[in-house]
Design a binder for these strands. Structure first.
Length: 871
RNA sequence: GCGGGCGUGGCGGAAGUGGUAGACGCAGCGGACUUAAAAUCCGCUUCUGGCAACAGAGUGCCGGUUCGAUCCCGGCCGCCCGCACCA
């Protein structure tokens, strides 16, 4: 069609140009992959197999997939398809993180049962994911709300119990006194319950706790072994675990209160003890409780702190406030007396729940001291400062310096002064040097229905009794009433009444369920043998774990990943696994964002309600569809239902096809950065899918048979350079670069219309194969046109290798700079001597002009890059 | 507040982590094809000055190291993620 303009061709030219019909092709290839079981692997791979486990963070079944899912699962699919082509046996499963609050909210708001709501959502989302053409092995699918899954989880919890990793402990929760429920932090808005509007109180509850702190040193040290994790994630985890060296210091009360005769503080700066001006305790500290019992003002302040909720972010951002209890403590070194304050920024859970304040060398202490008129005594002198007149104004001095005003520590640097202070404390029995961890044990109790029941029974005589193995799983009851306030398990008429397994007397079933982070802490192991009648089977997990490439959002950088690392150790300690780290490689993707739009009356608008145009000055304009009311184009921000700046992947796939959606989401930007979804970007991606199809189809009649040795040509160089560069880009997660290289390659193929047929066939075949991880359907379609008789699908072909002979260049372009400024470029043969290169550079007219007759003082040559002449 | 990250044309970004800034895509402009439109194809497109050759400026802001800095160092500004009961 393109190669003749003869008049008799006219009718053919008038025919509509052939179009790639993705609506027919995509389901066809999906069925073909299925029929050939391209993505199935055994639970126990053969010994000689090179296994590769690709996993994306499994979704919460909210009802519809969103663009974040499309991005996450496309990234994983590119890796899975690429690794498969590289000869690995790839496991790539999918499941559902199916317990959680939204199902209960739906039950309360719409009267749907959480299970019905969840499984309906799963069915919808499974269909949508299947339309994306992901190379998933659906046979391994499960949902964490399946009794077959959470029953196995209960077995794990009982094993952890036996290993001493499960404890009962009191801790504080957000309590809504009107709704009579425990609130999640996100349900506390400005200190009030989201539904009732009641002021939230802190309430102490007995809770189940997993002893993650037992593994704190190991979780910290093993970070250094995770060489395929992003540095920033390791840093965040390291800071979260928060190892710090310091001292516990005991301060004797001047007068004992309620039988308490001392307070212990933790400090990382024992060297500044002489700069103390107050001691502060958390509002929940026993001293605060004692003070509140004796003093109405103190009680009032404690109550105020109690209404602040449990969120650390809220506490730390609140105005720093305190209350002087009137209680006094004695300094261990000087015997001087200092006031004990209750302060809202002291956290009960960190250290000992009490601090000593040294305002001169801690910013928060300084702000507090200024506010309440407490003393500020500098005890560390900055280098070069004068001890006689050094004073601290608004900024605490926290760097290294020399101790002064500090008795026996005077003259020491900070590190030595710390040691000196600890030695002295230990000598007089007033304290010890300790290592403190910021990491707290993991409270897993939730007072909710839609979670995994914690498998214990409370007996008045026997205490806490584990549910016997033959009574597992402890199933959630189906008949629950969400109309009553509180936990439906708690208010259920019969469910919690059971016989004690050890003494058979009437006892009470635990009604707390698990934090959903527990469910997601071992699902990757369950995928290895998803139907086993034990949590995992050793042969399967030993063969498949660790996950070779884990992919998910950066928002999980700390908690989910840390809990999974802990679970892997705990499961190893209880014999289920034999490894420390669950995820050998980690990739964290950025969010998907979109412009937001507002109507003249301030209403958020969906993108499909808006029409765009161009103003006279070239800027974009927006108006309401079907009218001409001006629309304000807002910021590009994370897609959210409340701002209505969402794009439904289902609609995009229906309109453009899965390959287009995948291609665009990969092409836009590096996958670890936030990306902006734009309608025009998708349209561009769609054009490219059509173009590739057209290129193949129109070239077809002129191509020689497959298997013809391609002749030498510049196009062959381009082909093999493209193989090399796309391969490198895929290896390094630079998928946007891989896409760019393929665009360049398509341009090169088009520019080489008169290249020999063999070279063109090779180029087009490689274009399809190199694009296949990104656009798998189109790749199959193109391949089936190019190789109609071939037995193998692209999904079954090995990854192409570049011919090294075609990668070497004959000449190189060099930049020629004078004093670092570009003045010319020269092309030199690859083996040229440095003398010849300098001569060629200096011969350039523009270079001569820049040198302007001045003597050349220095000649710099970076091979293959640049020549710089210094005059 | 604390911890972590990011910032490059009109837009998304690229650039062996010290060596030609702006590849590739989007948008825009001009042209070809068409009765016309769509689609497709070709060309231009960081800014300023210049017909041009070319010159100057330029990778959030200010300063530093270097023959040479998007990259290294110091100080700011803005945005994003996490902060333990959202998942």
């Amino acid at each position: 069609m393109n190669d003749s303009t003869a008049p008799q061709d006219k009718p053919v030219q008038d025919a509509p140009s052939p179009r790639y019909d993705f609506r027919a092709a995509e389901p066809r290839w999906q069925a073909e992959w299925d029929a050939r079981a391209c993505f199935s692997v055994p639970d126990v791979p053969p010994a000689e197999a090179r296994k590769y486990y690709v996993l994306e963070m499994f979704p919460y079944p909210s009802g519809k997939i969103h663009m974040g899912h499309v991005r996450n699962y496309t990234l994983g699919d590119v890796v899975a398809r690429y690794k498969r082509a590289r000869g690995h046996l790839v496991m790539h499963p999918m499941g559902w993180d199916a317990f959680g609050l939204p199902a209960e909210n739906a039950a309360r708001e719409r009267g749907v049962h959480p299970a019905a709501w969840t499984y309906q959502n799963i069915a919808n989302m499974r269909d949508e994911l299947k339309r994306m053409g992901l190379s998933l092995e659906w046979a391994r699918e499960f949902a964490t709300c399946d009794p077959e899954y959470y029953g196995q989880q209960q077995k794990l919890l009982l094993d952890f119990w036996r290993a001493g990793l499960v404890e009962r402990r009191e801790s504080w929760v957000n309590w809504d006194p009107v709704d009579g429920t425990v609130l999640a932090n996100e349900q506390v808005i400005d200190g009030r319950g989201w539904r009732s509007g009641a002021v939230v109180e802190k309430k102490k509850l007995a809770q189940w706790v997993l002893a993650i702190t037992k593994y704190a040193p190991e979780l910290l040290e093993a970070l250094s072994t995770l060489d395929r994790w992003p540095e920033r994630v390791k840093l965040m985890q390291s800071n979260w675990i928060g190892r710090s060296e310091g001292a516990r210091v005991r301060f004797a009360l001047s007068t004992p209160v309620d039988g308490i005769d001392d307070v212990e503080v933790f400090t990382t700066r024992p060297d500044t003890l002489f700069g103390m001006s107050f001691l502060a305790v958390a509002a929940e500290h026993p001293i605060a409780t004692a003070a509140a019992a004796r003093d109405a003002k103190a009680a009032e302040f404690v109550a105020e702190c109690r209404s602040m909720g449990t969120s650390e972010a809220v506490i730390e951002q609140a105005e720093k406030k305190g209350h002087d209890t009137g209680i006094r403590v004695k300094h261990p070194f000087t015997g001087a007396e200092y006031p004990v304050w209750i302060a809202n920024f002291v956290l009960l859970e960190y250290g000992t729940g009490a601090i000593f304040g040294c305002p001169a060398h801690d910013q928060r202490d300084l702000d507090f001291a200024r506010k309440y008129g407490l003393g500020v005594t500098p005890v560390v002198l900055p280098k070069g400062a004068d001890a006689a007149n050094f004073a601290v104004a608004d900024e605490a001095f926290t760097d290294d310096g020399t101790a002064f005003n500090s008795g026996f520590l005077d003259g020491l640097d900070v590190a030595s002064a710390k040691r000196g202070a600890i030695d002295a404390l230990e000598k007089q029995g007033a304290g010890t040097g300790v290592v403190n961890w910021r990491l707290r044990d993991w409270g897993v109790s939730r007072q909710r229905y839609w979670g995994c029941p914690i498998p214990f029974i409370h007996c008045d005589d026997c205490g806490v009794v584990p549910v016997p193995a033959d009574q597992l799983p402890v199933r959630l009851p189906d008949d629950v009433d969400f109309a009553k306030p509180g936990n439906p398990l708690d208010t259920h008429p019969t469910w919690s009444h059971v016989a004690c397994p050890s003494c058979a007397k009437p006892a009470r079933r635990e009604t707390d369920t698990c934090d959903t982070f527990v469910d997601s802490s071992w699902y990757f192991a369950r995928f290895c043998s998803p139907r086993a009648d034990q949590p995992v089977t050793r042969a399967a997990v030993d063969a498949w774990l660790p996950v070779d490439q884990y992919i998910g959002g950066i928002e999980h950088a700390i908690l989910h990943l840390l809990y999974s690392r802990f679970f892997t150790r705990a499961m190893s300690a209880s014999g289920h696994l034999a490894l420390a780290e669950p995820f050998a490689g980690l990739f964290t993707q950025g969010m998907v964002q979109h412009e937001s739009y507002k109507s003249p009356d301030g209403r958020w608008l969906y993108p499909e309600e808006v029409e765009f145009g161009t103003a006279a000055d070239g800027t974009r304009t927006a108006t309401l569809k079907g009218g001409n009311a001006p629309v304000t184009i807002g910021r590009v921000e994370a897609m959210s239902k409340s701002k209505r700046n969402t794009v439904d992947p289902g609609a995009i796939i229906a309109k453009y096809g899965a390959d287009t959606a995948r291609w665009f989401i990969l092409s836009d930007n590096p996958p670890d950065r936030d990306m902006e979804w734009t309608e025009s970007g998708v349209a561009g991606a769609y054009r490219f899918t059509q173009r590739v199809f057209r290129m193949v189809e129109s070239a077809l009649p002129a191509l020689p048979q497959a298997g013809t040795a391609p002749e030498g040509h510049a196009l062959r160089r381009a082909t093999h350079r493209c193989i090399a560069s796309v391969t490198e880009a895929l290896e390094t997660f630079a998928f946007n670069v891989a896409v760019a290289r393929l665009y360049e390659f398509a341009n090169a193929i088009d520019a080489a219309k008169d290249a020999p047929g063999g070279a063109r066939r090779e180029a087009l075949e490689m274009l399809a194969r190199l694009a296949s991880p990104m656009m798998p359907h189109l790749a199959e379609e193109a391949w089936s046109l190019l190789r109609p008789g071939d037995a193998a699908l692209v999904a079954q072909l090995p990854w192409p290798e570049p011919d090294p002979a075609l990668l070497v260049a004959e000449s190189v372009k060099l930049a020629v700079q004078v004093l670092g400024k570009l003045r010319a470029t020269i092309e030199v043969p690859v083996g040229a001597t440095e003398d010849a290169i300098f001569a060629a550079a200096e011969a350039e007219e523009n270079v001569q002009r820049a040198i302007a007759g001045k003597p050349i003082r220095k000649r710099i040559h970076v091979p293959g890059r640049v020549v710089n002449l210094v005059v």
